[in-house]
Design a binder for these strands. Structure first.
Lengths: 211, 211
DNA sequence: AGGCATCTGTGCGTTGTCGTACATAGAAGC
DNA sequence: GCTTCTATGTACGACAACGCACAGATGCCT
């Protein structure tokens, strides 16, 4: 696949693909990570999946559709392998191994979608925030990453103030620390306890089928 | 496919497959329809997809995984074509056409998952109920179907009383009528106006890729 | 150093839904 | 007809999250 693509830089908040748009490229994150966002009418949206170096942006092409159902938004700046849609289709058609791997990844992503749907409905903001931080930490491969409360609110589908409140609570419990968008995970174990079961559920599915 | 399977009857509330269980059979609904439900710990759950004669239960097999990520629950009694997992895999491997069709269906189902996630987060119970009734009517191919408030609450992830309140409002607006579980859609156009945009969004995706 | 934009913290009344409890009403069986 | 079960209607306090407004606080730029 490498010879068919190029290594590019992903800029924070860059939109790789809008929901409903043609998929011109697929992306395999190397050290960046990307939010898959379901937008609704009227500028509201909800993050329904997170893609790091375990996955790929542009799953629609694997399913033979050339339009993305979701918005792909760069959450963590970094590098990725970008492959042209036509080239990707060609390589995919010739490699049953790649097909199989991406089928499995599609399955994992679907599981994540479903889990997130239920999680968003039933769990508290603070639990969901803890889950988000853990998922992000896994994909950032670092204890520190950058994101403002405003942006987090957008991801979790809550007000900025809702994040501030939840984040303050987590900080008071000394699980995280943040200043002006720089978030540090201080106590990963404690954060897992603060998170809902969904983090582990996702992780189990991931390890079972991609690990 | 017909020669590899058998026509069976689906009973109301029958569970075809539990989340996390092996997929032993796939089902192609003929006039019944099935809820795909994401369960969480502690007996709560959320319906994230609805499968009628446009689709199939057991998508995991299409993706090369033999475990279902969701619970498949019969919502509307009726008949379906049931095919053994091994036979299905065999037929699938030999038919690129079938593969392509089921890939597209997987895409539509994924879109539905994402739409439902955002819908569940942002829209009111009454709007969501209206959407659910329309989606169900499409799959029941009838203006009348059977479901109690209790069961609806389970599907939409709200209390029984929440459904009663929303359903009463819709009935007062003469959009629906119901008595003891028998729901009749009186005014489909009005119901569309009462529903959130998600109904049309789903429908557009469906028609674009499966229509 | 001063000015400005961005990020975070706090207060307050509102709202949609929750949990629980209890009341009515239709259907089914004896 | 009477009981019993199931389905629906209503009430009320609790609470998470909302919308809005404004006050610090930190970092950047001139």
């Amino acid at each position: 696949m490498l010879e068919n693509g190029e290594i590019i830089d992903l800029a924070f908040e860059e939109i790789l693909c809008e929901a409903g748009d043609r998929v011109d490229h697929v992306y395999f994150p190397i050290n960046g990570f990307i939010s898959m966002v379901a937008p609704l009418d009227g500028d509201v949206a909800l993050e329904v999946g997170l893609v790091g170096d375990e996955g790929m942006v542009g799953i629609a092409l694997v399913l033979g559709v050339e339009v993305s159902p979701l918005r792909a938004l760069v959450q963590g700046a970094g590098r990725a392998l970008r492959v042209d849609a036509a080239a990707f289709r060609r390589v995919l058609a010739e490699s049953p191994t790649l097909q199989q791997a991406l089928h499995r990844y599609t399955y994992v992503l679907m599981s994540q979608l479903a889990q997130t749907a239920a999680c968003t409905r039933f769990h508290l903001v603070e639990e969901r925030l803890a889950r988000w931080l853990l998922m992000t930490q896994d994909r950032a491969h670092a204890d520190v990453f950058h994101i403002t409360h405003q942006f987090l609110g957008y991801m979790l589908g809550v007000r900025r103030v809702g994040i501030t409140k939840a984040a303050t609570a987590l900080q008071n419990r000394e699980l995280i620390h943040y200043t002006r968008g720089d978030i540090t995970v201080l106590d990963r174990v404690g954060l897992k306890q603060a998170a809902c079961e969904c983090y582990l559920a996702d992780r189990n599915v991931y390890e079972k089928y991609l690990g």
